[in-house]
Amino acid sequence: MHVGPVTIDYDVLIEGMKGDVGFTSKEFVDAFQYSLKSLRKIMGAQENSQPFIIPGGGTSAMESVTSLLRKDDKILVISNGVFGDRWEKILSRYPVHVKTIRAKPGDYVTPDDIEKEVSKEHYNMVTMTHVETSTGIREPIYEVSKKIRNYVDLIVVDGVSSVSAEEVKMDNIDVFLTASQKAIGTPPGAGLLVLSENAVSRLSDNSIAGYYLNLKNWIDVMKSMEEGRAAYFSTLPVHLILMITKAFKLIEKEGIENRIRRHEKVAAAIRTGIEGMGLSIVAKHPEAYSNTVTGVIVNKVNPSEVLKEIVNEGIELAPGVHPDLAGKYFRIGHMGWVNENDAISTIAALERVLSRLGEPIRLGEGVRSTQLYLSKGNISNL
């Protein structure tokens, strides 16, 4: 129950256990073609959009966005936490002007505040984080993008902790990106992103991008592969892409809507259990609860001790990484192939561990609350 890399389905893992699949082989080209087409569907993108799967991870996908920027462009970063701040850290290395609007821990920057800022000054790009992994906060990106569409050139969304677990659609959005090791449910090693037609038109030799993560160097490979023809710029993570293909097939079989509902149900069950045992959640507003990450605040115990002890119960959680909440919380990841039994196991193990460590909780009430939620659908109706 980590925030990523997540537990991986065995059928997905087995796809990567092949000894001699070349990057120009028909097997690989077919797999890559399927994955590119599937990525476009999962992102809710138009047919004229361009999908990319590049080596690296979420951060490589983020940095590749410099392919769309030119010297002295102005970027507005919307940050709800550590990974929102990462946009600032990446872009500040380049010859562009960056301004950041930050929310306090557990909160989010409101659509009205963002609209107010972009109406005062023209920005070439606005970046947002759909689900802030450090706090579990979900930004209302669709409301924001609708409000600011006519003010800015490019709207970019980090969906590293949202894609295939939250509703994702590219309406009014120019770049939607993610990573392989999160809700898609495969090992780390790939950055996945889709560019709108508007974004593709910004690719040029005048961008500030470097070489390896310059999407202009990758686009012909992506187009060729999607047409079923092998192409090369730099070696792709062959075996990982075979696993991504299998994951996309499993997602297609489950149905993306069903997958999102499953994540929503498991997330709500876990939060109900946390609150049932008497603990608080980092996210302050229910409308900003995410389907993939929940931050849990403890009052007495050291959260690092909780993580250490719960591993002995067979469950791995994630440490809190927001500096303003250091020593006050830990995180539960609930994404990928998680199910209702995972929610029950997590809450049960947490109760045992917290009780042993001396955290004041209502022992047994967390499991009871979770069970009631899962059996009835909504505990408030009981």
Rank of each mutant, 00 (worst) to 15 (best):
V321G: 12
H130L: 08
N48H: 14
L192Y: 01
P303M: 00
E47M: 10
D324P: 00
F83R: 02
L39T: 09
S38Q: 06
A45I: 09
V152H: 02
A247S: 15
H263D: 01
R262V: 12
K246E: 11
G278I: 05
K74T: 12
T24I: 11
D205L: 13
H239L: 12
D112F: 08
G228V: 09
G320W: 06
R102S: 07
H334W: 06
E264C: 09
V98T: 05
L68E: 01
F23M: 12
T7Y: 14
R368I: 09
V160M: 03
N172V: 04
F330E: 02
S35L: 04
G189E: 01
E275M: 14
F23R: 11
T59V: 11
F28S: 06
V118T: 05
I114F: 00
M225R: 06
V293S: 06
E143V: 04
R368Y: 09
V238E: 05
I297W: 07
K41H: 08
A268S: 14
S196G: 12
S204I: 04
R362Y: 13
N217P: 10
P95W: 05
K71V: 12
Y232N: 11
I260E: 04
I53F: 00
M17E: 14
V282A: 04
L69F: 05
Q371P: 05
V306E: 03
V157H: 06
P187L: 06
E365Q: 15
L307H: 11
V65M: 06
R86K: 14
P303I: 04
L236C: 07
D73K: 00
S375N: 13
K26R: 15
I137P: 00
V282H: 00
G56Q: 00
K216A: 13
T7H: 13
V200I: 10
I274E: 10
N258Q: 11
K120D: 11
R352Y: 13
I8P: 03
D30C: 05
L215K: 05
A349T: 08
K116G: 01
